[in-house]
Design a protein around this nucleic acid. Structure first.
Lengths: 159, 159
DNA sequence: CGCATAACCGACTGCTTCAGTAGGATTTAA
DNA sequence: TTAAATCCTACTGAAGCAGTCGGTTATGCG
């Protein structure tokens, strides 16, 4: 598996916040119930998102989380990286700020690291996919949730 | 990290076999020494490659491994999958033989899984990068190893 | 004021995988 | 017959995953 559930849950969380019409904060427990995810685990994930500046929190009663910027401006590479850490295909693969790729094996040999070409391509493929997707797209793709007068609609009533 | 060292070492191993001009088998210890990798660990990896039909082995003295087919016909998606197992961006992401994508979360909700779009794109990016790269490319990229009369050239003499 | 609600924080746990080691059994060329 | 090689199973320390738990702080409301 390329990514763990941290990315999965975290993205779902972000989408849930993106669904919200206004900028009213959503409580974690609401997200947990809507997505059927463990609340205490979401706490860890949302902490990462907050530290990355992707969501803002309001404490106290009726508090919660909301997106730090409009969903159209949030690309998924930033989100996934906040949750999973630096995205690289391989341990030895380090990207400098200028975009150059370093490989830790290149120093120890006479010939260039033959896998570098491969991992560079993979890296590019993943990065393009993530950076080319915005949170707004996912929110829209997720389906048009009812918007007509449903500020405090009951949720748990299945069937 | 998207992939573990299993993919890294395994690909390096394949490249090393691909370097060999003829179809003469290369012993694992030779590969281990050339790439500075632990022999006993390589044994595990080469077993996976053999079971996947990517390399063939000849036992006994002067035995070793060689590619089961020309390097031009070996694409890296097969190699990496043999080493790492099924490549999917997420646990819930299953691809059927016909190419359809199933998501285990889609049954439990009213709306479609909003992350599916994202993981589908990531999957496509990785698959294209891996399937679009042949072992022959990596061998060539790795650099032209000396070919002129170097059947038993000493290796360890650095500096 | 006091209480429920909610964000925040750190420690702990069972489980699986990773990366590698160890010890042997079998096969084969010389 | 022996050295070189593949082959196989079992084991191990370390790390990350997927949570759980208990407690602290902040805040709106009656």
């Amino acid at each position: 598996m390329l990514f763990s559930t941290k990315a999965e849950y975290g993205v779902r969380l972000m989408v849930e916040l993106g669904r919200q019409p206004g900028s009213a904060p959503v409580s974690l427990s609401a997200v947990a119930e809507a997505e059927r995810l463990p609340l205490s685990y979401l706490e860890h994930l949302v902490a990462k998102l907050r530290k990355a500046g992707l969501v803002v929190s309001t404490r106290g009663a009726h508090g919660g989380y909301s997106l730090a910027m409009p969903a159209e401006e949030i690309t998924l590479d930033v989100v996934v990286e906040a949750l999973e850490g630096q995205i690289a295909p391989m341990e030895c693969f380090h990207e400098t700020p200028e975009g150059k790729v370093l490989c830790s094996h290149e120093s120890d040999g006479h010939h260039a690291c033959s896998t570098k070409l491969l991992w560079t391509r993979v890296q590019s493929g993943v990065t393009k996919a993530l950076a080319g997707t915005t949170l707004a797209e996912l929110v829209e793709f997720g389906g048009a949730k009812e918007e007509a007068g449903a500020k405090a609609a009951p949720v748990g009533t299945a069937a």
